[in-house]
């Protein structure tokens, strides 16, 4: 049983670390600011989520687990707010996103 918990927790932790790393690579590789936001989004959502979930498994049922859950909730509440504030100020400052094939904005009827 302990072994199972360790394996699941460790697996989550490693997957989370991998996603964090992929997000970092995206931050470097993607071509312009608006696309880089999506790269940072990977680390903020699944990277943080999996790492903290892995730690929760390792901690077992204790106050530590609840604290980890609260940190995760807090991160998931604040990260879209910060991201939107950032993207919106970039847009208002006049930074133009680079779009595919110079297409016009599509919209729902």
């Amino acid at each position: 049983m302990d072994l199972l918990v360790d394996v699941v927790g460790g697996g989550l932790l490693l997957f989370g670390a991998a996603f964090a790393l992929i997000g970092g690579i995206g931050l470097i590789r993607l071509p312009d600011f608006y696309t880089r936001i999506h790269g940072a989004g990977i680390t903020d959502t699944l990277g943080a989520g999996l790492i903290l979930s892995g730690l929760m498994f390792e901690a077992g049922v204790s106050i530590v687990t609840i604290k980890l859950l609260l940190i995760l909730l807090f991160l998931w509440l604040t990260s879209p707010t910060a991201t939107h504030a950032l993207a919106n100020s970039a847009l208002e400052t006049g930074l133009k996103p680079r779009l595919a094939d110079g297409e016009e904005a599509a919209s729902t009827p």
Binding site: G23, I28, F33, D44, I51, L86, L95
Partner: peptide
Amino acid sequence: GAVLVTMGLALVRAAKGPTIFDRILALNM
């Protein structure tokens, strides 16, 4: 180690910019 490498990548982006928003994004990450 993986988290530290990611932080390093964020620092590279913060240093390279080119816009201030790239730097703030890197800072946030």
